[in-house]
Nucleic acid binder design. Structure first.
Lengths: 212, 212
DNA sequence: TGAGGAACTTACCTTGCGGTAAATTACTTA
DNA sequence: TAAGTAATTTACCGCAAGGTAAGTTCCTCA
């Protein structure tokens, strides 16, 4: 062995394994910092590898992002779909959806934010793909929120649009809080959300509302 | 006059006026793109000026950010303070707070996001100042949410923390939606929020909740 | 009319990033 | 044991951003 003057050469890690490591590190980095602020050198360093390897395995930065996005998007879309489709929309459907999301995200919570990154190059393939995912998810949610609004006496389409946004960001918020509290299990989170919903209901049930 | 071979030299715009222009453009750029993704050349171009001038008037990029942050933070903190302090916490306090925020933000809606930028250099003065602002605002909100939770039968401090986050991000979400719908007046937004609250109440008032 | 200061730009430097071509080392197998 | 291939690095390019020093033009007023 003697004197390895260069650190080049294989380290015995098979390609597939390495790719998985890279995807995991990249997902975490993209999820926490966002596409624009995330840097390939930083991701590479996490894995203990050079950024060149990232390029060789995944191509450009956006390609790598896409490689992170697709599995996460597929998994979440599928989760939400089955959570909502079980039976008709009921009052606790939202909680069931939340629970399924928490469960699907356990082990890699930041992955959620890979789906909703605003700093993506707007014209790129990654942004297009992400938009596909959340428009599909939104469509699922839209059914529930529309019913809700009709029941509450509103037929304004902008109300529906706004509610869609609120719901989507509410999930993001809860996940963000969850990321900061790693000890919380998915089930504990779901129960917490149920309590929060109950508290919120108290807030909004005042009949003497001057803003109506 | 003849041939001005260089475009250097004054354009007759007094320093204070120019500084205002720069602050406005920078606030918009920082608010929409975020600190990391925003670029000084882009801001300079909006104003029709060179980035060097930004440096001469405001110093470093972070200094400029701070110069944007302080007036916005002062204004919003003040607004929320008076909106909450008018009398005791009632059920429609949240709507009053929202209305005051919308009103204060009218004319420069993206400014809200200057307060809550996650891409700031974590150790810098700007991040510290921003944290001061929203911890002050959170403290105001904490009173209301704590009461809410107690009423709903929860004494878990983590519930309170989570609710604080949710409320904060809810405001951000509503403002973000508002930015995308420039024709909506602050009053119209407030009324819309009242309707959304009502709809949300319907969602959370199911007594047969299996997640409790 | 001719300083002097105020408002602005030109030209430059440095750094860090995304990206590529060409090695270099280790593992396998004929 | 030598050849071939898989895994990885070294060394480089170009670019755009943040930042600075030194001018250049215009306005004002003694």
């Amino acid at each position: 062995m003697a004197t390895p003057r260069s650190k080049a050469g294989t380290k015995g890690v098979p390609r597939q394994h390495r790719q998985q490591q890279i995807l995991a590190a990249a997902t975490e980095e993209f999820g926490t910092r966002g596409y624009a602020a995330a840097s390939l050198p930083a991701i590479a360093e996490r894995v203990g590898v050079t950024k060149t390897l990232l390029h060789q395995y995944f191509g450009t930065k956006e390609d790598l992002y896409l490689a992170c996005l697709v599995p996460v998007g597929d998994r979440l879309l599928d989760t939400v779909r089955t959570a909502m489709g079980r039976d008709g929309t009921t009052a606790h459907t939202p909680l069931r959806v939340l629970q399924s999301i928490f469960t699907a995200l356990e082990g890699q919570r930041e992955a959620w934010f890979v789906l909703y990154d605003t700093s993506l190059p707007a014209d790129g393939a990654a942004a297009r793909r992400a938009a596909e995912y959340w428009s599909a998810i939104d469509a699922l949610a839209a059914g529930g929120t529309a019913d809700l609004l009709r029941a509450a006496g509103s037929d304004d389409p902008l109300d529906a649009d706004a509610l869609k946004y609120v719901w989507r960001d509410l999930v993001a918020t809860l996940v963000r809080w969850w990321v900061k509290h790693p000890d919380q299990s998915p089930e504990a989170m779901t129960r917490r959300c149920a309590r929060l919903f109950a508290a919120a209901a108290a807030l909004t049930s005042d009949p003497a509302d001057p803003f109506r």
